[in-house]
Structures are given as C-alpha cells and as structure tokens.
Computed example of a mutant assay.
Amino acid sequence: MAFGGAGFAISYPLAKVLAEHLDSCIDRYPHLYGSDGRIHACLTELGVTLTHEPGFHQMDVRGNIFGLLAAHPTRPLVSLHHLDAVKPIFPKMTAMEALKHLLEATKVDSQRTLQQTVCYDRWFSWTLSVSWGYAVQLVGFNEFLPVAVLMQETYVPWKRGPLYINHNLNTAKYQPDPCKRPVVFFFDRVSSSRDGIASIYKKTENNCTFDKIQEVRVFSKKLDLDIKQLQAPRRQCCDVLPSSADRVMEINIRECGAEELIYMHA
C-alpha cells in the first residue's frame, strides 16, 4: 500500500470481507482525510497488516523527476502520481504525450518498464545505466555500482522550508554543469518479435562528450517474473556488444548467472 494518491491494492478475498463492514467502518472515521486513510483504518480493524510496495509512487516532489524514474526500485512499476505537478518525463513533449510515450514501452514489456540495469564497457571503461523503456545514461569512466544506481536529485521538494526535508537519504547530487553529467539517451521506439525485444534510445542534446554516439539499441527478452522472483527481486545483467553500425551502441540485457557479479573491470 502507498498512502496518498499513489494507490493501494488488496486481494479479492480481503475485498470481499471488507465490503461487508465498509459502511459502518467509514462512519467511525469521519475525521480521517482521504479514502485511503479510511480504508487503512478499516483493514486495521480486520487485523490485516499492510505491506509497502515500492512500485507505487506518491511522488510528492516537483520539477524534473528524471532522477527518480532513472533509478526506479527493482520492482514492477505500478503507479505514478502527481504527474500534473512535474515537468514532462520526456523532452520536447507535453505531459500527456510523454506519458503515452512511456506506455508504448509498457505495452510491450510491463514488468521491465523502468527497471535499471548497469553494465560496463570493457573496451573504453565506460559505465552504462539502462532504465528500460525510459533512458540510457552513459558515463565516460568506470563508476562503482553503488554509485551508478543512486537516485539523482533532479527534482525539488513538494514544499520548501525547514520542516520539509529530502526523505531520500541515499541520493546523488545533480550536477548543474551539463559537461559533468552522464550523457542521456531517451526512449524513442520499441519493437517485438520471436527473437526478443529491441528498444531504441536517442540522444536529444550534446553535453560536451560522446558526440559520435547518437543512438543506443537495447536487446532483451520479455520479463515474466514468478512469485518467488517478485518476493526476492534481483537486478539483471547486461553486456555491451560490438557495434553493428557507426554512431550506435548496442546492449544486451539478460538474466545474471547464479554467482555472477556486476562490477567494473580493470
């Protein structure tokens, strides 16, 4: 469950029991704000403990939420709230156009949408972070994995003042100098066939480096997680492939081996 407008989900058996007592329960909590708060109180009366699901996003922030989306938790995306209070999630689009664009990827592989994968280019010592269906980031050096997966503070707090602090304790400061930021390639299109899924990401602006590379192609299989994988998610692995075209980088996403590590190579 996520408090606020991010939403919540309950099972059918629980909903069936809740429906029998809902009217009287709501009458007992007129002082609570919002339907979610009242439902929570009613479920508490039934002795049900709620579980936080990272795929629900209340997003009480403003501005550019690129950092939040590009470092999404390793869980399926469920909801994005307050999109009317933030900038469009894709450049050069309206908020509605950008959301529909993200849904193009979601329709092809909903469980993989926004899932972050990090791989290292052995030839040039580059670090690449793929947020599937959204963006690819390219860093021109080997970056430790715990740093590569950090959420960048591209956004600003929902409300300003000493009482409103950043609740994301483990984040990375956003570099104001574009020359010091990763090169970003945004999702352009996706196609699916019997051989797998190919998603294309294109650079929208230059930032002092990597002028030659204009496009990143990411190959993957449809993600279909079973209940055990959902309960104990594991980040997948990826490999930088020898490029088949000039000005293009190609990446393959796959399941990691049983004992495989994701780390930068000397």
Results as ranks from 00 to 15, higher is better:
residue 49 T to S: 15
residue 258 A to R: 14
residue 190 V to T: 06
residue 92 K to G: 00
residue 11 S to Y: 13
residue 223 L to R: 01
residue 189 R to K: 12
residue 67 G to A: 06
residue 29 Y to R: 09
residue 197 I to Y: 01
residue 222 K to I: 12
residue 258 A to P: 08
residue 157 P to F: 06
residue 105 A to E: 03
residue 63 G to A: 10
residue 104 E to L: 12
residue 210 F to K: 00
residue 158 W to M: 13
residue 140 G to P: 00
residue 245 A to P: 01
residue 155 Y to F: 14
residue 93 M to K: 08
residue 158 W to K: 13
residue 190 V to C: 03
residue 39 I to C: 03
residue 136 V to D: 05
residue 11 S to V: 01
residue 230 L to W: 12
residue 159 K to S: 14
residue 5 G to K: 04
residue 196 G to A: 07
residue 46 L to I: 07
residue 109 D to P: 05
residue 29 Y to M: 08
residue 166 N to Q: 13
residue 2 A to F: 01
residue 34 G to D: 04
residue 219 F to C: 03
residue 2 A to G: 08
residue 234 R to P: 01
residue 263 Y to R: 12
residue 151 M to F: 01
residue 1 M to Q: 12
residue 243 S to P: 03
residue 203 K to M: 11
residue 152 Q to G: 06
residue 99 L to R: 09
residue 179 C to L: 06
residue 168 N to K: 12
residue 99 L to A: 09
residue 108 V to M: 12
residue 45 E to C: 06
residue 126 W to C: 01
residue 260 E to P: 00
residue 244 S to W: 08
residue 94 T to R: 04
residue 186 F to I: 03
residue 221 K to E: 09
residue 105 A to S: 10
residue 139 V to K: 03
residue 46 L to H: 15
residue 86 V to W: 05
residue 96 M to V: 10
residue 232 A to M: 03
residue 240 V to M: 14
residue 263 Y to M: 11
residue 205 E to W: 12
residue 117 T to S: 04
residue 105 A to W: 03
residue 248 V to K: 07
residue 153 E to F: 02
residue 96 M to Q: 09
residue 118 V to Q: 02
residue 77 L to A: 08
residue 166 N to P: 03
residue 108 V to F: 03
residue 109 D to L: 03
residue 23 D to I: 00
residue 203 K to H: 12
residue 35 S to Y: 15
